[in-house]
Design a protein around this nucleic acid. Sequence first.
RNA 1: GCAGAUGUAGCGUAACGGCUAGCGCAGCGGUCUGCAAAACUGUAUGGUCAUGGGUUCGAGUCCCAUGCAUCUGCACCA
Length: 482
Amino acid sequence: MNLQVFNRLSREKEAFQPLVEGQVKMYVCGPTVYDHAHLGHAKTYVAFDVIVRYLRYAGYQVRYVQNITDVGHLLDTGEDRILKKAGALSIEPMAVVETYTRSYFDDMDALGVVRPDISPRASGHVPEQIAMTQSLIKKKHAYVTSSGDVYFDVTSFPEYGKLSGQNLDELIGGMRVEVAKGKRHSADFALWRHAEPEHLMQWDSPWGRGFPGWHIECSAMSARYLGETFDIHGGGLENRFPHNECEIAQSEALNGKPFARYWLLTGSLTVDGVKMSKSLGNFVTIKDALKTYRPEALRLFILSSHYSSPVDYSKAALEAAQSGWERLMGAVRLTRYMLQDAPDGDAAAGFEMVLDEHKTRFMTAMDDDFNAPAALGVLYDLNREVNTLLNSGEAVGRPILDAIEQAYLELGGGILGIIPAEVNETGMDSARQDGLIQILIEMRNEARAHKDFAAADNIRTRLADLGVMLEDRPDGTVYKVQ
RNA sequence: GCAGAUGUAGCGUAACGGCUAGCGCAGCGGUCUGCAAAACUGUAUGGUCAUGGGUUCGAGUCCCAUGCAUCUGCACCA
């Protein structure tokens, strides 16, 4: 275990050394829950899922916090995303939040993403955000305008821009949105906004009725659950500026100590080279993708490029991932098939060495900034070794078969989340269905024995039409369900 | 304009400065099979690693320059 991570803050690969030995405190920017999640979200959260899984596998005790943004995230027009959706559907804003929060967790569960330990909602932490804003005002890092808005004063934090490499003077030129009234510097950002009476989500504050700005929630909630300084801050690269930059400014200006020690940001999911996003309309929801592809195949597709790189979505790429997954599962299925009738004893015990070697290579890849695509390559290498062994015709003892299955479950299952533990892959092959298929296999093999290949092929074809694929092996016929 | 990223076989992607540049998908053969499927294996002298220099015993990797293409952010987004 010699984990190196690429820290976006230092722009260098660094040895990973958590603040407290053996413990990792990690915060990842979560979704704004105003619509169903799409594959872009899947990319980010699957990537961090594997990071968390690996850290835990490596023995760290991880506290993983991922927020749910349900207030304060405004559109260019100044409208709140949640309120806009609530208006469109004519329902309570909190009903919108509830609907899409559940939808989000449903999607993540379906993708096998392990839930965060804490999923705090912004609307449930308004007092914390107000308190933080008050302290920032007291320390003269923020000011109140005549209309009841509170802005962070970016000139009071000289390091502003250090994460994204932005320069205050140059920022002004590229601005697309009109500078709000009352701001001293165009780069100042809102900690608190006053609300008009008809605004549906508003709270009392020292500055009148209003609601928190978007950036403050992450600072307030990470401080509450992880402390003022914590180990890993994750999120999508597109949030580096302004969001992540503002988080750093607020927290470090207030606490006078480092905010997050390692910044791990994910590359975007693109479609034909362009980022998948709501506004461009080029998105595919996770629910839709799961109608066509297995969750493991989606994960494999996402993990086939490094978390910090972009990955381009296409039908061909997803189908390639699904084929690759089938390839891995072929060996897993074969291992499990042979385990049903495996001899005791140490036949093929030498394979233990091959397993160890590949495990080591796998870990080396993951230690190198969570290089899942490289680790996946090792898994494919191992897969070939396993296939060669299991098809060699030589006896393979139960201990080795157990060790092989264990390796798949550990690396492919536990860490990457693409190898399911159950033999049952589809939920379709109940005992009864299995029995029915076995009867057909027996009938077909009788026909084959009588060289009645027309009848035999008829059974095989018709089963294939139903998605049941037969494979004849020297030691019998096996099937898989598509 | 400013900040940053990427460019490696048909496609998708890897490679602490060090074996013949790896893996997957797709194509075409071979072995196996009654035929398939799966698997293994071979093959396309399958790769001028964007271009041109430099450092080095050694460069896809480090440095400089160039131009092309594409992408991301610039106060909207995971």
